[in-house]
């Protein structure tokens, strides 16, 4: 029936042809969205790499005036092969860099509970394999004025998105990493809790 109509009605062929092209483009755009975020994040990281080594950022860090979206620390997790720059802030805009520091928590390597959030499936997915961390794995933070090493204290665990207790202050120097869970969803949060091991000398 449709085939017959298509044979006889030129306007229908043209209309369906246009529709198919539009659907094709829309589909490509949506399917390609995660890849596009990765490209976007790579460009941001290039800028952040330069910024984290700059004297201006070092000064701002000392004065505790790092702006949201600016470089704050570098995070390295050897077990996951992760090495990326973390920005200040966890706004959607800031998190396009891949990972961001909860501004209400202490600066990296300071006393208390330092918390960092990272994307799991988009924007370079820095925390994509966070669930593979095991107790004893090390996490290294390098700030503009120094650095420190943490060690994963326990197995990854899942909490509700509204469970803010995981980034509450703690009596000891600790690091908390959060990411969305399960992969591709934001229904829950996967949490890694690590404790401070040692400080690193400034480069």
């Amino acid at each position: 029936m449709l085939i017959d109509l298509l044979r006889t009605k030129r306007w229908l062929r043209v209309a369906l042809s246009g529709l198919s092209v539009a659907l094709l483009l829309g589909g490509v755009a949506l399917v390609g969205y995660p890849f596009a975020t990765n490209m976007w994040r790579d460009r941001i990281q290039e800028r952040l790499q330069d910024q984290i080594a700059s004297p201006e950022l070092q000064q701002a860090y000392k004065e505790r005036k790092v702006e949201t979206g600016d470089s704050l620390t570098r995070i390295k997790i050897a077990a996951l092969g992760l090495d990326t720059v973390v920005v200040q802030g966890v706004t959607p805009s800031a998190l396009r860099a891949g990972a961001g520091h909860y501004p209400q928590t202490p600066l990296p390597c300071e006393g208390g509970n330092v918390a960092i959030a990272g994307h799991r499936t988009t924007y370079g997915r820095p925390f994509g394999n966070l669930d593979q961390l095991k107790p004893g794995d090390t996490i290294e933070l390098t700030t503009p004025i120094g650095g420190c090493v943490y060690q994963v204290a326990k197995d990854p665990f899942v909490v509700a998105p509204t469970d803010l207790s995981v980034i509450d202050p703690t009596g000891e120097r600790s690091l908390t990493l959060t990411t969305c869970h399960p992969k591709g969803s934001a229904a829950q949060r996967l949490v890694i809790r690590a404790t401070w091991v040692k400080d690193l000398k400034a480069a």
């Binding site: 062929r13 369906l16 659907l23 589909g27 949506l30 969205y33 998105p161 990411t179 934001a186």
Partner: peptide, 28 residues
């Protein structure tokens, strides 16, 4: 806690659109 998950419906919707587009092309 910070939302760091994607929107899974985006790629799925995109795949659906692609299938639909291919179906129309086949009819054409």
């Amino acid at each position: 806690l910070a939302k760091t998950g994607g929107d899974p419906w985006l790629p799925m919707t995109g795949a659906g659109l692609l299938v639909l587009a291919l179906g129309i092309r086949r009819r054409l």
